[in-house]
Amino acid sequence: MLKAENLTKQFGTHTALDNLNLEIKKGDIYCLLGSNGAGKSTTINIFLGFIPASSGRALIDGNEVTVNNHATRDLVAYIPEVVNLYGTLTGMENLEFFSGLSGYNYSKTELIQFMETAGLQRSAIDKRVSSYSKGMRQKVGIAVALVKKAKALFLDEPTSGLDPHASNEFSQIITHLSEQGVSTLMATHDLLMAKNLGNRIGIMHQGSLKHDLLSQEVSHTDLTRLYIDIVKQNV
């Protein structure tokens, strides 16, 4: 479903991504670990078509992102670390807007269902987003991903700053989407979440993928050790 072939990104003389090769299959939850500047967000930004790769190819469902960006946009949904929405609009209006931009015309009842699936309380739906907490915004972000019926989900530190309950709710939704065949690429610092949520884990360092692991084959302790060893190289 998602494929990176010799993907490289350079910002001037700095190599942010160095010859990344990666394949994520349908329904996979791939968690990318790494310290700041390891290249996790750059990978996601290239897949989303936000920035072009310096060389190599990023493919979504066989479509090369730079060549057919319009088609690949239909297939993806994105939830950043902080889901920024339009503060003067209500949660419902934000969802209505983004679902419309995705080409869907849902009824109000259907949109409420998406909001509830994402975990947002019914009473909050018609309030302006400027009054929402970070967790509530994150839930609207998930609802946006749900309405889009995306085949691939890109998450950039999605649970950062969420309370454990909200974080757990979030994990459940991602797992549910995975069961429905949605592929997920998630950049995170949270080793425990990566181990529990992901079925595959990658550890990046200075733009390179140092480890590509199956979650079930690595213990939390081993994962922590591997991660620390990699991060130590930077110190």
Binding site: Y78, V83, N84, L101, G103, G141
Partner: peptide, 10 residues
């Protein structure tokens, strides 16, 4: 920060 959501739409 809404540009990313906007640009990732159709």
């Amino acid at each position: 920060g809404t540009i990313k959501l906007l640009l990732s739409s159709k």
